[in-house]
Amino acid sequence: MGGKPKAATADRLLDAGEYGGAGDGTAEQPHYHGHRERLRARFLGQGAEALQDYELLELLLFVIPRRDVKPLAKQLLRDFGGLWAVVNAPVERLQSYAQMTEGAVSALKVAGAVALRMARQEVLNKPVLSSWQKLLDYCAAAMAHQEVEQFRLLFLDRKNTLIADEVQQRGTVDHTPVYPREVVRRALELGASALILVHNHPSGDPTPSRADIDMTKQIVAAAQALGVVVHDHLVIGKGRHVSFKSAGLL
């Protein structure tokens, strides 16, 4: 009847924060006893603003059973540089961490996907001029942490409402092949009157290259010939961006 609980029962109690302390017939409590319940309660009671980034990450990592995941959360933030970078990290890199389970990787990727989809919904089917900062935030969220170049097209109607958002090409770490005819053809298929071009620089430096400038001129010329306006070309880096229009390049 008495004595220590079986291993499976002990693991379950430890994960739930209910493991008994020394002197009551059970093993000594771990230093993080009850931490998961306290952190969840603080999140539900006070909201995300009451938690630091590593604590929000811990909540996602609680799918890892019977472990203190605070050190892992802090290590991920150090290694990747921020919360958004963690949830957008390549699956292979996340899997390289010893404690990282398949469930934990999935939880991180789902969190990133949900956040990105919500950001997209904030700008799709809305006039871009009245939601410009949200558009920039969305582009940064979608592209700033990509490891290869990505060329994205934002299609607008006559009222400058964003009607479609598509990735046309993916390239290498420093080059994406772009074909002006394909850009214009897609705009005509969608009935778009205007375009915003967007691509990222995985290096983090959004300074346009000569190739970026030449490519933009080719697209502008091809679009103008068919009555499609190119409003801007945004180059997304890490933490900043360059607008061709603002820089006098368009």
Rank of each mutant, 00 (worst) to 15 (best):
M215V: 03
V86S: 01
D137A: 12
A115C: 01
A98M: 07
V183S: 03
R40Q: 11
T172E: 15
A48T: 06
K74Y: 02
S203V: 06
V173K: 12
L162D: 08
Q218P: 08
I213Y: 07
P71K: 03
Y19D: 12
A119Y: 05
H145T: 12
V229W: 04
V235M: 14
D212V: 01
E182Y: 03
M118T: 13
H199Q: 11
Y138N: 02
A10D: 07
L83H: 05
L135E: 08
T26D: 11
D165H: 04
V184R: 00
V63P: 04
R12N: 07
A16D: 15
E37Q: 15
P90H: 00
R38I: 07
R38A: 15
L154H: 02
L14P: 01
E149C: 12
L13V: 02
G45E: 15
A141Y: 10
V198Y: 03
V220E: 01
Q46L: 14
V86Y: 00
K6H: 13
A247R: 10
L136A: 04
V235W: 06
E37N: 11
H201I: 04
R66E: 15
W84P: 00
I64A: 06
E28Q: 08
P208T: 07
A225M: 05
A27C: 08
A89N: 02
V229E: 09
K74R: 15
L59K: 06
E28P: 05
D165I: 12
Q52H: 08
E58R: 03
L249C: 07
E49G: 12
L136M: 14
M118F: 13
E28L: 10
L124H: 08
L249E: 02
A113V: 07
A223E: 06
K245W: 13
G103Q: 05
Y179K: 03
A221R: 11
R38W: 10
A10V: 10
D68K: 05
R158Y: 14
L57S: 04
Q150P: 05
L188E: 01
K126P: 09
M100Q: 00
Q150A: 14
D205N: 15
A225Y: 02
P208W: 08
L94W: 01
A113H: 09
L59W: 11
Q52C: 03
